[in-house]
Simulated scan of single mutants.
Amino acid sequence: MTCAGRPVPGRWGIGIVASVNNDSSILRTAPNFRDLGGYPTEDGRRIRRGMLFRADALSRLDEEDLATLERLGLRLMIDLRTVFEREREADRVPAGAEHVVLDVQGNHRTGGDLAAMFSDTERARELLADNGAERFMHEVNRTLVGADDARSAYRELVERAAEGPLPLVFHCSAGKDRTGWGAVILLTLLGVPRQTVVEDYLASNSRLSAATAWMLELIQGRGIDPEEVRPMLEVRTSYLETAFAEVERLHGSFDDYVLSGLRVKPETVEALRERLLEPAA
């Protein structure tokens, strides 16, 4: 799968990119499940394959896909979802894997039960009025950077990747926003170039295209304009620019965000790199 188009750099050098590195399908019932291994780093190394995975919902895995996770030797499943989502659809955990909840949104209003919201047509129309869906997504991305719940959860995600059992997978429901920012943090700490990080972020759109089309059709059937909802179902470069702008506003730089925002110790970052990067040639 690819995200093709002409590069259009933004404030952070973010633009549409030409291709996606890890574009193979691994799980039929979780299309946004993918290996973060194989990406090259700025110092010429590569992330080890088969150690670090990102994903969408893992509650609807069929038996074949559950068996695939067992063959991968998965030892840790990290669930970034809210209590609403976890109670409605519990993860299917492969044998031998530990399950850990790191709720990045907690009780913040951006972490509400969106499925329930769209079942209430009037409430949905109020939220969506005047380009409300796009405003909501920008708020989500600022929250993922600045909220206490998010900082605590992402710190532990980094620490577990550096020191916990591997292989691991971290996921939310669509695997695009909460999981997307988690992947941005890990890939950046591992030294992956910014443009490649953005490429990985945007890959969710093509991987989730079938689910997005189904959701838009369902929403239209409830009397809601699907185009008003589309911004919630996609990742966009502008969302990521908002997250990076919030990093700069609150901390001045990504390094300071990691150190003073997430409170990740430098030795943890070093352990992460030592563990997940292939030896230099």
Score class of each variant (00 low, 15 high):
residue 8 V to Y: 11
residue 132 G to E: 01
residue 150 A to I: 08
residue 64 E to I: 04
residue 272 L to H: 10
residue 164 G to W: 09
residue 229 V to Q: 01
residue 23 D to A: 08
residue 240 L to E: 05
residue 52 L to Q: 02
residue 205 N to W: 01
residue 146 G to L: 11
residue 28 R to V: 06
residue 155 R to C: 07
residue 272 L to I: 14
residue 107 N to K: 15
residue 115 A to M: 05
residue 185 I to N: 04
residue 110 T to H: 05
residue 111 G to F: 06
residue 232 M to H: 00
residue 203 A to L: 01
residue 55 A to K: 03
residue 186 L to N: 04
residue 168 L to Y: 07
residue 183 A to T: 08
residue 192 V to G: 00
residue 105 Q to N: 14
residue 3 C to F: 08
residue 242 T to F: 13
residue 255 D to H: 14
residue 17 V to C: 07
residue 192 V to P: 00
residue 253 S to W: 08
residue 150 A to E: 05
residue 191 G to A: 11
residue 25 S to C: 06
residue 108 H to D: 13
residue 243 A to W: 05
residue 162 A to W: 13
residue 131 N to Y: 03
residue 85 E to N: 06
residue 281 A to Y: 15
residue 208 L to V: 00
residue 261 G to M: 10
residue 62 D to A: 04
residue 210 A to L: 04
residue 83 V to N: 13
residue 188 T to C: 10
residue 212 T to S: 02
residue 147 A to W: 09
residue 235 V to T: 03
residue 22 N to M: 02
residue 60 R to C: 12
residue 11 R to I: 15
residue 64 E to K: 05
residue 72 L to W: 09
residue 58 L to Y: 12
residue 262 L to K: 05
residue 232 M to K: 00
residue 276 L to Q: 09
residue 158 V to A: 07
residue 47 I to D: 05
residue 199 E to M: 02
residue 109 R to H: 08
residue 37 G to L: 08
residue 228 E to Y: 04
residue 264 V to K: 07
